[in-house]
Each structure stands twice: as structure tokens, then as C-alpha cells.
Amino acid sequence: MMLFTEVRGLPVVPPDGAGPLGTVTSLTVDVVTGSVSHVWWRGGRFGRETALPWDAVGAVGPGALRVRSGSRSGGASASAPSHHDLLGRRILTDTGTGRGTVLDVAFDTRTARLLALFTTRGELPADRLLGLGDYALVVRAG
């Protein structure tokens, strides 16, 4: 298990470990599956942000995020989904009640499944996620 805040800033390294490709900037979540779908990273000093599909990630640890062997051009995705960062996102229930903001998210680094959301109002189980948009993260009330 790792937290989103632990993954941010990790170097993205190729399978051969020959120098970093860039640095992780954020993670995209697929609310329907309840898992991380893409890793966003920025390469070089003025490099643009690139999306890496989760299936191109070989391993994630406290020292680096390693790209899976066989991923071309670092596994960069030409068809990345729209990205809404969960960290700092306002939380609303499906009935419209505010539930604070997201401070961090725990996820399984092997399966990419979300485990829990840590919010300004306590912990929320990941299975309560319903939607994510420009304005807020929507969770099931209860």
C-alpha cells in the first residue's frame, strides 16, 4: 500500500534503470473501477506532462516508479483520459452534502485499486466513490 502523496515526486525510471525519464506529478483515477488508470509525469526541466497507462508500470516503491519492460517511449499514452487530481478535491455526497476535501488516497501498488480516501472529515472507504469532475468528487452518502 502507498499514498498518493508518497508517489508524487518519485522518479520515473526505464526498465534498465538508466537514469530517470522524469518525475511523477499526479495519478488519474477511474472512478468506475475504483483504481488508478494513469500516472502523470513530467520529464526534464521544461518537459511537458505525459500520461503513462497503469498497465505500463512495472513497479512502484519508495524510491522510484519503474516502467514495465517492453513499453515503447516510456509507455506514454496518446489517448489519456481527462485528468482530475483527487488531492485537494472537494467532496460532496450524492445528496449534495459537503464532506470536506481529499487530503490523501491509499492504494494497492500491485493492483492499482483504491483502498481509502483520507479527508478533512475522516476516512472514507474507496467503494463509496460515484463520480469525479471539475467541481467535486461525489461519494455515496451513508
Rank of each mutant, 00 (worst) to 15 (best):
T23H: 11
S71E: 05
L27K: 00
A56K: 12
I91E: 01
P125L: 10
V24G: 08
T50W: 08
V102G: 05
F118R: 10
P15F: 01
A64G: 03
R48A: 10
P81E: 03
T25M: 00
A59W: 00
S82F: 09
D94K: 00
F46L: 12
H38Q: 11
G74W: 04
G74C: 09
V24W: 04
A112S: 15
D30E: 10
W40H: 15
A18N: 12
A64K: 10
S69N: 07
D30N: 14
G88I: 01
R99Q: 15
H38M: 01
P14Y: 08
L103G: 15
V12H: 02
A78W: 12
R42K: 14
A18V: 04
T28F: 00
A106Y: 09
M1K: 07
L10K: 06
P14A: 05
T109E: 14
G100V: 03
L87S: 03
Y135E: 14
S77T: 03
A106E: 13
G142V: 08
T109I: 12
T25Q: 13
G88C: 06
L65V: 14
T25A: 02
L27N: 07
S37F: 02
L52N: 04
G88A: 08
M1F: 03
T28W: 01
V138L: 11
P125T: 05
L3D: 12
L86M: 02
V102A: 07
L27G: 03
F107Y: 09
V31D: 04
T23V: 13
P62Y: 08
L52Q: 14
P53L: 08
A116T: 09
V7R: 07
D104H: 06
G70T: 03
V12W: 06
V13Q: 04
A56W: 06
H83D: 07
E123S: 11
G47F: 10
T93F: 02
L21F: 10
P14N: 09
F4D: 00
L117Y: 06
D30G: 02
P53N: 05
A18P: 00
P53S: 03
R42L: 03
T109M: 10
D85E: 13
G70V: 06
R68D: 05
R140W: 05
V32A: 14
V57F: 01
G75M: 04
G34I: 11
T33H: 04
T28L: 03
D134I: 01
L130W: 02
M2N: 09
A78Q: 09
R8K: 13
T111I: 10
M2A: 13
M2F: 15
P53A: 05
G75T: 06
T111N: 03
V139W: 11
T50R: 15
R90N: 01
T95D: 13
R89H: 14
T101F: 14
T101P: 00
S82N: 09
S26E: 07
G96K: 02
P20N: 05
A78P: 08
W54G: 03
D108K: 11
A116R: 13
G100Y: 05
A112V: 01
R110E: 15
L115P: 00
R121K: 11
L103H: 08
G131S: 15
M1H: 07
A112T: 06
T101S: 15
A106R: 15
G96N: 11
